[in-house]
Amino acid sequence: MYDFEFVKVGSLAEAVAALKAEGAQALGGGQTLIPTLKQRLAQPAKLVSLTGIAELVGVSASDGVLSVGGATTHAQVAREATAYPALAELASHIGDPAVRNRGTIGGSLANDDPAADYPAGVLGSGATVVTNAREIAADDFFRGLFETALEEGEIITAVRFPIPQKASYQRFAQPASRFALTGVFVAQYADGVRVAVTGASENGVFRWSDAEAALSSSFAPEAVDGLSVSPDGLIGDLHGTPEYRAHLVKVLTRRAVAAAG
């Protein structure tokens, strides 16, 4: 690991100021960033730890919206997001217990790993990513592999999830990393159904619009039977071909609809 300066800040304002420095980077729970640093794939001059900012931590629900602070750990979401059980369930399967005790929602979203779970939950819920500067709709936030709409130095302060009528996240684990080989988040809202797929595409999380249309008219597992997912642009690696992932998208969507009841 290359050396860097470590700064722990107590407020959002301090964080924003600290991140203005050349080569500064925000550090959430570090569960992705620290392994990346160990491989010497990144060389920040300064890491600004956000986990000490009380205002960024917490889970609350009101008016049909679940709000999660940007520095809230996966473990806390799994425990406290009772108003949105599908999201709590999603959080309860990220990484492993020790990783969930450190990893944060903001860190996960800012990193935007194509096999991460949270992007499916955020996109599948049509959530709003709140930063120190603005609010970004989920549909505008994810920009492809490890790429988001965040500007340099911009900090995710919270994510606001509209709570759906029904929802479920179904993931199929890559056997080694246990990241999602493919994961599908299905959420039914009064104005329609959203289906978000992670792990499968070379461009990161995406919405399966054919399934959304079919499920919006009939929210039943069979509704997707006639659909198919094109393997074009899906990931092919040691753990599965594009065709296998395309198949899993459909299987998991069906299961998510069934589990959402």
């Binding site: 056997p175 080694a176 990393s177 690696d237 040691l238 753990h239």
Partner: peptide, 23 residues
């Protein structure tokens, strides 16, 4: 069921960490 050390045609070990070598 799980483990496989896989090389690509150029001799790079594709399953070179626990991220890809399933224990």
């Amino acid at each position: 069921l799980l483990e496989h050390a896989v090389y690509d045609a150029n001799g790079q070990l594709l399953s070179g960490s626990y991220m890809d070598y399933a224990m």
